[in-house]
Design a protein around this nucleic acid. Structure first.
Lengths: 215, 215
DNA sequence: GTTCTTCATAATGTATACCGTTTCAAGATT
DNA sequence: AATCTTGAAACGGTATACATTATGAAGAAC
């Protein structure tokens, strides 16, 4: 038809494009994502678009009405509180489970920190921060735990993106503080017990929450 | 409790049927669920079947190969351990969050217990047990917490179903013990603090784990 | 002005058809 | 016997077409 779908499959292409548009705020929260309109714009049929919308709903970036229409998710402060509550429940657990593995090999975390220290934009640091945490979830060895966390990641990116666009968070302090806090966590993994790692991660998440504008 | 698109009839029908077949063990673990075959058997086209398979994957009853073929999930003991770990993380939290609400009104829980006391089959008690817990998750007021739990429910039913079929659990003791334990939890909600409810729920989940054959 | 009705439009639900890829077993090769 | 080919059948990815329902604005009734 029109433009060649770059990535492996069309639905994957549709997912990535819509995902970015939603997180970057190009798609208005609450706006309708009609299958035909999206399909025509992306140069494909409704079928892969439909599939993409299903997967984006799983990631919390899209929500369906009772009659099956897809809308760009409009997160509320309460939604964010829910996400925070779940991070606080899942991440310290993941840190404890991952501790034995990360004590042996924390190279991925260290590499992430080293890149973070050189990062310049808030956007990059946000992404690297999430990746740091995801490395830990992955190292926990609990595939379901990882998947649950990943299912919330999109919503967190969405929330943080909107926050950055509206509030212009002060970047100077947070950039280095993020790397420092992460370095402390890595040190804990290398020298302390799993229970200690769990406690530190809990404090880290609590601190992260304190940081954000209350809105 | 509506999710995703309307699923007015056909895809919903397909979901319910396949779901039951998988949990009841009529569909062999690891067997292929080819879209054409299922569609022809259920008297519909591939489209609603395809949608049903996607949603069943979200519920952990189906898994896709890299090339997109759907198979009946084959749970391993490790899978069950993961589920247990997550229940232990999420349910005590839910109990604490739900405590204020349930202190005011525990009628749904009490009704569930009353039905459980009169239940005869292990199958019924298993279902009522899960419903009891889901009532608490629902009362927590955290919609994401509830959804995460629901996404694991299918796998738990699947595991328990296979367990019952292979081990013939002794039913006499567990039937009444389930109702008794649940009654104690309700009493805790009505008279104790949220933190106490959280601790009791943790003990309850740990006890539940002890019960099951190790396999 | 407000509420109810109507109805064209728009959107999803579903079916069918085509195409490319994967699969797997029969046959070839060593 | 074990391994490597190979090709037809099976299967999923996608497009298109049709069916059904929801939506929302314009008009009717009060």
């Amino acid at each position: 038809m029109k433009n060649a779908p770059a990535l492996s499959s069309r639905s994957e292409y549709a997912i990535n494009l819509m995902r970015r548009r939603i997180i970057d705020g190009q798609s208005e929260p609450g706006s309708l994502l009609a299958e035909v309109a999206v399909a025509r714009e992306l140069g494909m049929s409704r079928v892969p678009v439909r599939e993409a919308l299903f997967l984006l709903e799983r990631d919390g970036l899209v929500e369906f009405s009772e009659t099956g229409r897809a809308f760009v998710k409009d997160l509320s402060p309460q939604d964010f509180e829910e996400l925070f509550t779940l991070r606080l429940a899942l991440e310290p657990l993941a840190a404890r489970l991952a501790a034995p593995q990360l004590k042996k090999d924390a190279s991925l975390l260290e590499k992430n920190i080293s890149i973070t220290q050189r990062a310049k934009s808030v956007k990059d640091v946000t992404r690297l921060d999430l990746e740091f945490h995801e490395i830990i979830l992955d190292a926990s060895g609990n595939t379901r735990l990882l998947k649950l966390w990943q299912s919330m990641r999109g919503e967190m990116e969405l929330w943080l993106g909107r926050l950055h666009r509206s509030h212009h968070l002060q970047t100077q302090g947070t950039l280095s503080e993020t790397a420092d806090a992460h370095a402390a966590i890595v040190n804990c993994f290398k020298t302390q017990t799993p229970a200690a790692c769990e406690r530190l991660m809990r404090e880290h998440i609590l601190g992260w929450r304190e940081w954000l504008p209350l809105l």
